[in-house]
């Protein structure tokens, strides 16, 4: 078991003929992901890395049986690419592209949430089930099949955390980068629910950062619904306040969003919080040792 993706997942790449799309398709193939094709409007009939390229996602799904997609199209076209994947019946949509306008995501978000599909990202490293399926830009070799489910709002900081759990011999089931944008398709809670239900996942590592209230909401959810050991880290304790937050932004969250408030909320929910980014793997170990 694992969550969302595994060795059976059939993946296409939207934007496969672009530089990033082609590069990462190659690396996902090398990791063992079942890449089955790609989509670039106007480039149908060509091939990339030996995979067939289609003009539309609908055609790609029809001819390859794809049920997941990895999106690398430019930011201006990402909302359209997500909606196209959704329309074609893709179940797991992973949008790697960064720089998508926020109001584009507002328009996409409701449609995604009304469907049965899962959108990961945008502006994220992707999702990987260790040893089975990598959909994204993370370096494959730092992962090791194991016991920890990883959920993160960051990219490279996730690699750091994964590396630490691999070095401690804990390994991972599935690792998901939610994405760093204000509006992303999947929340901590969506995945906590799935990891709680997954037989192989023995512990969960959650990596958050300052801004918004997603970590506080996750803490409340964990207290109520998650019986597996959870460890967490919050990045940005020393970030200057108000640098990227407007006045009205602070109002809507009722003054929430600082690292201290998030850490307090997590600790109150019985979560093992790593004080240093070098301590994330060890925090998972401590959470497992003190298992409820």
């Amino acid at each position: 078991m694992s969550i969302l993706v595994n060795r059976e997942t059939r993946v296409i790449c939207q934007g496969i003929t672009g530089k990033a799309g082609a590069f990462h398709t190659k690396h996902c193939l090398a990791y063992g992901t079942q890449m089955v094709g790609g989509v670039t409007p106007g480039k149908g009939g060509t091939t990339v890395e030996g995979l067939p390229v289609f003009d539309t996602v609908s055609e790609a799904v029809h001819k390859t049986g794809a049920n997941a997609t990895m999106i690398y199209v430019p930011a201006a076209f990402t909302a359209d690419a997500i909606l196209e994947a959704l329309d074609a019946g893709i179940e797991v949509i992973v949008a790697i592209t960064e720089g998508v306008p926020v109001l584009d995501m507002v328009r996409v978000y409701d449609t995604v949430r009304r469907s049965n599909a899962t959108l990961i990202g945008p502006n994220c490293p992707g999702i990987i089930t260790a040893g089975q399926c990598k959909i994204g830009i993370m370096p494959g070799y730092i992962h090791q099949p194991g016991r920890v489910g990883v959920i993160s709002r960051s990219g490279t900081l996730t690699y750091e955390a994964v590396w630490q759990t691999s070095n401690l011999g804990l390994g991972q089931t599935t690792c998901v980068g939610l994405g760093g944008d204000p509006i992303v398709g999947t929340s901590f809670i969506d995945l906590l629910k799935q990891f709680q239900a997954d037989d192989e996942t023995e512990a969960i590592l959650m990596i958050g950062e300052i801004g918004g209230t997603a970590e506080e909401e996750a803490a409340a959810y964990i207290q109520q619904h998650v019986t597996k050991p959870v460890a967490a880290f919050i990045a940005g304790r020393t970030a200057p306040p108000g640098k990227r937050m407007g006045h009205a932004g602070a109002i809507i969250t009722g003054g929430k969003g600082t690292a201290e408030e998030k850490i307090a909320a997590l600790q109150q929910a019985g979560i093992e919080v790593a004080q240093s980014p070098a301590d994330m793997g060890a925090a998972v170990q401590r959470a497992l040792d003190g298992r409820r």
Partner: peptide, 15 residues
């Protein structure tokens, strides 16, 4: 490289 790691690097320096 990466915003989360950059913030964490600041954090660990301060720590």
């Amino acid at each position: 490289n990466g915003a989360g790691l950059a913030m964490s690097t600041m954090d660990i320096i301060k720590l």
